[in-house]
Structure formats: C-alpha cells, structure tokens
Simulated assay, not measured.
Amino acid sequence: MKKAGKILKISSGSPQFRIQAVFDHVAPLYFFYGQNEIDNDLVGLNIDKSERKSVRTFDQVITVSEGDVVFSLVSGQATLVRKIHEGYLLTQNYVKINLNEQLDNKYLTYILNEDDNIKKQLKLGLQGSQVLKYTLKQIREIDMPAIPALSMQRLIGDVYFNQIHLQALKKQTADLETVSTLEKLKRIDKNERIEI
C-alpha cells in the first residue's frame, strides 16, 4: 500500500489569521470556501444560500479551481469543486488534493468519503480535546487502497455523484411537500376554528 502523500500532492489552505484584510476596492475580493460550499458541491445543488463570507486582500492566497478535490479537516468530508465556486479562498481548515493521471477526481472523492478502511484510519488519528480535527500529516499518511483501472474509476465516480445528487433532489422535494402540506393544514385549521 502506498501513502496518500507519496502519490498525491496534498496542500493546506491559507492560514486565515495571516490574511491581511484591506478596505481598498482595488484589492481582489475573495469568497471563503467553507462547509456550505462543500455540501453544495457534493450534491450538485445550491441548497444553503446563507450569506457568503468574503475578504479583500492583496495577499497571495490559496484558491480552488473547478475539478479540485477538497477535504475538510473539520468534517472529514471530501468534495469536488464545481465551476460556481472557482476562485474561492481556501483556509487552513481544508486541504486541496492534486491528482496524478492515474486517479480520477470523482473516484478519489468517493473513496475518501466512503471507503471503510480510510474512514477507520482517519478516526484513529483524530486530534483535539474539545474540537476533533484531522491534520494535514494524517491525510498524507493514509494508506491508499488498491485502485481499479481508470475507466472503472470514472464509472464508479459518476454513479456515486449521480446517486448523491438524486438523493438530495428527493430530500428537497420531500421538504417542499412537507412545507406545502403544513401550510394547507394551517389554512384549514384557521377556517374551521370556532369561538368556544
């Protein structure tokens, strides 16, 4: 078995506390790539539309590109960056994984999220007393499983992302149906009430 750090280029995001924010409108504006973006990219939808955190800075910062594999050191979840989040700023709570030509990015996302052996390795090395957090070193030390041929990786990766997208759509539909039904019940209840 090969260590992830030997076959993949794994780099940490920009340390947030070192970024010098400026109020000069000439400075580039960066939106932060965070857990909401990871969740949205993984399911292929824009589910959470909460306000995006941003910063203006002249500093050199690490940003993400479409197709990058990003792993959260906080949630232990990996995703594939979509075009909508290209150029977002990556902080030290995330790592960016650059692949070699023998590994498909969707397949890598799949095994980081679903492979039982990788999950076990990650759980064994959790750090922190109050807040459990993975480390860059820990990600580099993952023993990678045997990898199938590239054509099979692509097939598995595509099916994985399609299934997660479908599951998110079904949940979204069920949530909308619940809201609609509750609104109907409230209207019926209001119209049927009588003074006692």
Rank of each mutant, 00 (worst) to 15 (best):
D59W: 00
K133A: 13
D189W: 12
F161G: 01
D175G: 01
K133Q: 14
K96E: 04
G13Q: 10
M1Y: 09
D24Q: 10
N40H: 12
R18Q: 08
K3H: 07
Q153A: 04
I118C: 06
T63N: 03
Y30V: 09
N36D: 13
Y134R: 10
N46D: 11
S129W: 11
N98L: 10
D115V: 00
F23C: 05
R154D: 00
T63Q: 03
I111F: 12
L185Q: 08
G125C: 08
V26R: 14
S75A: 13
K9F: 01
R82T: 04
I142S: 04
L99R: 09
Y160N: 06
T63F: 00
G34Q: 14
V22F: 07
G125V: 02
I62M: 13
M152S: 06
M144P: 02
G67Y: 02
D175F: 08
F71E: 06
I84C: 08
G5F: 05
E141K: 08
V131Q: 11
G125Y: 02
R82W: 04
Q130S: 13
L80Q: 01
V64A: 07
K9Q: 11
G128A: 09
N100H: 09
V95W: 03
I147H: 01
E51Y: 06
K3V: 08
L136H: 05
A168T: 08
L89W: 06
Y110R: 03
D158W: 01
R193C: 14
K186H: 11
V81P: 03
E192A: 15
K190L: 12
V22P: 02
D68R: 06
R140N: 12
I118P: 02
Y33Q: 11
K190C: 03
K184F: 01
V69Y: 12
K3T: 11
E37M: 11
E86P: 00
